[in-house]
Amino acid sequence: MSLPVLNIQDLSIHYQTEQGPLQALRDVNLQVPEGKIIGIIGESGCGKSTLISAIIRLLAPNARIGRGSVNFKGRDLLRLSRDHMRALRGDEISMVFQDPMTSLNPVLTIGRQMYDVQHRSAANRAEKTARSLQMLDRVGISDPATQLQRYPHHLSGGMRQRVAIAMALMAEPDLLIADEPTTALDATLEVQIIHRLKELQREFGCSILFISHHLSVIAELCDEVIVMYAGEVVESGSVRDVFIDPRHPYTQKLLECDPARIAQRTRELPVIEGSLPNLVDLPGGCIFRERCSHRLARCGEDRPDLSGNQHQAACHLLDAES
């Protein structure tokens, strides 16, 4: 395996709240190898957004980085100066946002925004316009020349998201962070965007960090997957390993709850009992203990570490087996 483009080590982040520090991320380890698509799954509030905000260093003002490092191509992003960090954004690291209806400026034409995004390039106006046209064409927008004259409200959600992807890939970044880019789209469009993203990834050779809570999207698109729960990585491995042989009880439950995998007709969809633990007042031991049906005595005492080589999971059951 080649050197990872992004290597996050033991990252811990908390938010300062009136109730006390909210432990949003605890000892998160994550590698994004070159040219791979890594998916992150987890329910709302599991720290996905905090993680990507930490990577691009746009954390909320009350967020504090406890420890750890975010290594991007040999540089620790957490220790980079603000100007260096800004120079990386949109150039080597790019991002596609969740809601295409709000992530484009409503009062500027698509052309103007695509031109603006190339503000670092030394190319002249005609070359930049040509580049915009080329990028729109590559993300599958028909008649790009007309679209450049249009305003975001003239475009459908799917087209806007394509424009956002085109803008993100404009500078040919090494890492593209996609924050639930298909959640706001309907199912047909979702499939189209996913396929397009996969093609573009092959063409550009960039790595993608893809955040979603849609299991089938992750299964379709990603090479490797990381399962997060309440600010911790509970399982990671190749998509095949994790989806066929989930080791952590949380992943197992999550897969059981995926409507796409339920064969029988049913009136009631399965759910995972209980709710996320309070991150301000963390219980000791395993984070998933309260909702786990395989609870052991030691789960209440010590926190399980990730174990395994390629396919890792943090659960005491795995130690018991071996």
């Binding site: 691009i56 746009l58 946002f97």
Partner: peptide, 8 residues
């Protein structure tokens, strides 16, 4: 936020 994330 998107503009910021794109390095503006």
């Amino acid at each position: 936020l998107a503009e910021r994330a794109m390095g503006a």
